[in-house]
């Protein structure tokens, strides 16, 4: 089973539509048990990281996500989903996050338009199956005001320029996270999900 985590924050419809287009049958779920039992987990997110964190805690999904990552189950985190994996965020003052990846979520620098909205290039720093058939410097769709800054630079698999060089793809073992939205990035975004689900062996 492919589980799409529903914690009341996110455009689940688009993510679900993308999976269906790729001929997968995902299950949208709020149940920590479903997440623990899934062959692959999709962790979407829009809105504010602090709100996301709170609903994860209330539903017990925070523990399930930590556990899934610890055990090496494949998980794909998107946008705010990626930010929530860090230790803490500057958004809304200072807020604690899941702490799966040591690092901070920072506000984009002043001087440029914020939110960062639109298509921007991702420079691939590593060779990895997630990038199969995706040319280096391909455009993906971004919409965010904050970005994740991991302490360990070896988890940074792709970067994007917007006032800062920001980590737009993060990979650690079976965990993949993107600041952009693959489900909104046309055929190349769908390709990235397909690569992930193939890696996860989730073909049904």
């Amino acid at each position: 089973m492919i589980a799409i985590i529903d914690y009341g924050a996110g455009n689940l419809r688009s993510v679900t539509n993308a999976m269906v287009k790729l001929r997968y049958q995902p299950k949208v779920t709020r149940e920590p048990e479903d997440v623990r039992n899934a062959a692959a987990v999709i962790f979407p997110g829009v809105g504010a990281a602090a709100d996301a964190m709170q609903s994860l805690k209330e539903s017990g999904l925070d523990e399930a996500i930590r556990e899934v990552i610890r055990q090496g189950q494949p998980l794909f985190a998107i946008c705010v989903g990626m930010q929530v994996l860090m230790s803490s965020t500057e958004e809304g003052g200072w807020n604690e996050c899941l702490g799966v990846i040591p690092g901070t979520v920072r506000k984009l620098p002043a001087g440029l338009k914020v939110p960062h909205i639109g298509w921007n290039q991702v420079k691939q720093l590593v060779r990895h199956p997630i990038f199969d058939d995706i040319p280096d410097e391909s455009n993906f769709y971004f919409v965010h005001s904050y970005y994740a800054e991991p302490e360990d630079s070896t988890v940074v698999a792709g970067t994007t320029e917007y006032g800062v060089t920001l980590c737009s793809v993060l990979i650690k073992n079976n965990l993949v996270a993107t600041q952009f939205h693959p489900e909104k990035s046309g055929t190349i975004g769908l390709k990235m999900y397909d690569n992930f689900l193939k890696m996860a062996g989730a073909k049904e």
Binding site: S14, Y141, S185
Partner: peptide
């Protein structure tokens, strides 16, 4: 539209 169009 959302079933087949994967842009914002």
């Amino acid at each position: 539209v959302a079933e087949q169009v994967f842009i914002p």
